[in-house]
Simulated scan of single mutants.
Amino acid sequence: MTDFSARRTMMVDTQVRPSDVTKFPIIDAMLSVKREDFVPAAQREAAYMDGNLDLGGNRVVLEPRTLAKLLDALSIDGDELVLDIGAGLGYSAAVIAHMAQAVVALEEDDAMASEAQETLMAAGADNVITHSGELAAGAAEHGPYDVIVIQGGVDHVPQAIIDQLKDGGRMGCVFMDGALGEVRIGYKSDGRMSWRRAFNAGAPVLDGFKRHDQFQL
């Protein structure tokens, strides 16, 4: 029988801590959340591998290092509302739930959203709302948000998403340029975003976040 608890500890000790992630809420969350419960059944054995985990349909669970460093750069506080875009089967939302006041987990694949809701409930993540809808449209009815996290690659961020971020809020996502990518943290001031590079990472670009998408009628 697989000892997932030991694998979880090893993930934190070999992938997260060596990446200079030291904030206790992040370490605690990644030690506590059972990643194997938030991946497709056929992928359970690969749940703690070093790399993005394929969910199919150009979607991934971000590798532990990337998610941990992204959350570290965002410094989510316990009184903040977070929009988690592209939540997939709910792993990222479960982790963020340990550090935020509340999380809205947005997922446009109805089957994944339904499974995420069930798994999050079973995990006791009662401060997460699962919202089914188009990723690029956000979830305005639950906002505005203190923090927005995008669980996948982007070429650009749609204005509809930026509009749902509070002034003074921040956003984190993986900007891709071909095969190369970097995580950037964006800060909103007077309605405008300013971005700074955080670290290198990669992820497939989400539908609705590709440059050409904004020109389609």
Rank of each mutant, 00 (worst) to 15 (best):
R35P: 03
G57H: 13
Q101H: 09
M99W: 08
G57S: 14
I185C: 12
I162H: 10
L106V: 06
S194T: 15
L180V: 08
R192S: 04
I129H: 00
G133T: 03
G208F: 07
K69R: 14
V33W: 08
M112P: 10
G124H: 11
G78K: 15
G208M: 06
N200Y: 02
D54E: 11
S114T: 15
G152S: 07
W195G: 00
A137K: 14
M121Q: 14
L70S: 02
T22N: 03
I27A: 05
T9A: 02
L83G: 00
Y48M: 12
F24T: 12
M121I: 13
Q164T: 02
H98L: 04
E108C: 09
T119M: 13
V95N: 03
M11S: 01
L70H: 01
G208P: 07
G208K: 08
E63V: 02
I26M: 06
L165G: 03
G208T: 09
A137G: 08
L206T: 09
D28A: 15
M112V: 12
V128W: 07
G172K: 05
V149L: 13
G191E: 05
I96R: 08
A6K: 04
L217T: 13
I27L: 14
L67V: 04
L135T: 06
A198F: 14
G181E: 10
E182K: 11
A42Y: 15
Q216N: 15
L31K: 05
G78A: 15
G138R: 01
G186D: 07
F215D: 00
G57F: 15
L71S: 01
P40W: 06
A73W: 10
I85N: 02
D163P: 12
A94H: 05
G138N: 00
D213G: 00
V205Y: 05
L81F: 10
S32I: 02
F215A: 02
H212I: 10
G138K: 00
E63L: 05
N58I: 01
G143K: 09
G143Q: 06
G56D: 04
D190R: 06
E108V: 03
D177P: 00
M49S: 07
F24I: 09
I161Y: 13
K188M: 11
T119P: 03
R196L: 14
R197T: 14
I27P: 04
G191M: 10
E115G: 08
S75Y: 11
T2I: 10
D190E: 13
P40M: 06
N127H: 01
V103N: 08
A203H: 09
L89Q: 03
D28C: 11
L81I: 07
E141S: 01
I185N: 11
F24A: 14
G153W: 11
A160N: 07
W195M: 04
G88R: 07
A94Q: 03
V154A: 07
L135M: 12
D79F: 06
A137N: 13
V157E: 03
G186A: 15
I148D: 01
I26G: 06
R192D: 02
R196W: 14
E80M: 07
T130P: 00
L89R: 07
G90V: 12
S132E: 08
S32A: 10
V103T: 07
D13K: 13
L120F: 13
L83D: 00
A122T: 02
D213H: 13
A123M: 12
V16P: 02
G51R: 15
M99E: 10
V147K: 06
D13I: 09
M49F: 09
S19V: 05
Y187A: 07
S5I: 11
T14G: 00
D28N: 12
R170W: 04
V128M: 05
